[in-house]
Computed example of a mutant assay.
Amino acid sequence: MTITPFTGACNGALEETLDVLSSQEAMRQLADSQAAIAAGDVLDSGQLAALLRPCEGTWPADAVPNG
């Protein structure tokens, strides 16, 4: 029996990971996100919920967490 590494679903995930890692824009967004976290520029769950409230009722029920 021959076992080939990185086949099937794993190959797709690997290719997607390589695409992200080779994207300068994705790496810039990651660096910006890490800097925002380090600076404390984050939302807690209550703040996020408050921001999403104006959108309530505009999404299908199955698309809203705990909806």
Rank of each mutant, 00 (worst) to 15 (best):
I3Y: 11
L21Y: 04
L30T: 03
D41S: 15
Q47S: 07
G57E: 04
G12H: 02
L52W: 07
S33F: 05
P5E: 09
G67Y: 03
S45T: 08
V64G: 02
A9Q: 14
N66S: 12
S45W: 01
L30G: 02
A13F: 04
W59V: 02
M1K: 09
E16C: 04
D19Y: 01
V42S: 11
V42K: 12
C10G: 09
G8W: 01
D32L: 09
T17W: 05
S22R: 12
L14T: 07
S23F: 01
A36L: 12
C10F: 07
A39S: 15
A31T: 06
C55K: 12
I37N: 12
A31M: 07
C10M: 12
A36C: 11
S33Q: 13
S23D: 08
G57P: 00
N11W: 04
L52Y: 09
N11K: 14
S45M: 10
E16W: 04
A35G: 10
Q34I: 11
A39C: 13
D32P: 00
R28H: 04
A26N: 07
A38Q: 15
W59C: 10
A61C: 01
E15D: 09
A49T: 13
A38K: 15
E25R: 05
C10Y: 07
D41V: 10
A61L: 07
D19A: 13
E56V: 04
M27W: 01
D62R: 05
F6T: 03
P5G: 03
S22C: 05
D44M: 06
V64M: 08
Q47N: 05
G46A: 09
A26W: 01
M27C: 08
W59P: 00
L43D: 11
P60T: 02
L48N: 03
D41A: 15
M1H: 10
M27D: 02
A13Y: 03
L51R: 15
A31R: 09
